[in-house]
């Protein structure tokens, strides 16, 4: 039970962090120039965004929750289970970021999630 609670935190905080960073970058807007000056400007705006810091905070929570769960649960169970990130992340992208996740993209996502689970399960 404790393992599942922590795994849920790992997956939800991890994808939540990614979604927050994505939201921040979409607010900043499409980067069109890659000159050092332009990139510094983008980074400066990013550092001023609350969403970036929320994202980094959530990623930190996910990281420490993963470290914690690994102290008692099997790596060969925990790490493949984090492949759930792909599915949860796509659901979040669809409903929170309003991305259009087509059936083709879903098919590819599920293949990737299954593949990541397999790769991580093989020890």
């Amino acid at each position: 039970m404790r393992t599942f609670v922590f795994l849920a935190v790992v997956v939800l905080a991890g994808t939540g962090g990614d979604l927050a960073v994505t939201h921040a970058m979409k607010q900043i807007g499409e980067v069109k120039s890659f000159s050092p000056r332009a990139l510094l400007g983008v980074m400066w705006r990013a550092l001023k965004s609350r969403w970036i810091w929320l994202g980094i905070a959530l990623m930190t929570v996910a990281f420490f929750a993963l470290l914690a769960v690994l102290t008692w649960a099997e790596v060969s169970f925990v790490v493949p289970a984090t492949a759930a990130n792909y599915v949860v992340g796509a659901v979040g992208a669809k409903f929170l970021l309003k991305e259009r996740v087509s059936q083709t993209r879903w098919a590819g996502l599920l293949l990737v999630a299954a593949g990541v689970a397999l790769v991580c399960a093989a020890r």
Binding site: R105, G108, V112, A117
Partner: peptide, 22 residues
């Protein structure tokens, strides 16, 4: 590299190819 891992790699590769079409 164990067979399971190669199988997973093939799944990922196919999945990336499919998502890459969107």
């Amino acid at each position: 590299v164990p067979g399971k891992r190669w199988a997973g790699a093939v799944f990922i590769f196919l999945g990336v190819a499919v998502v890459g079409r969107t």
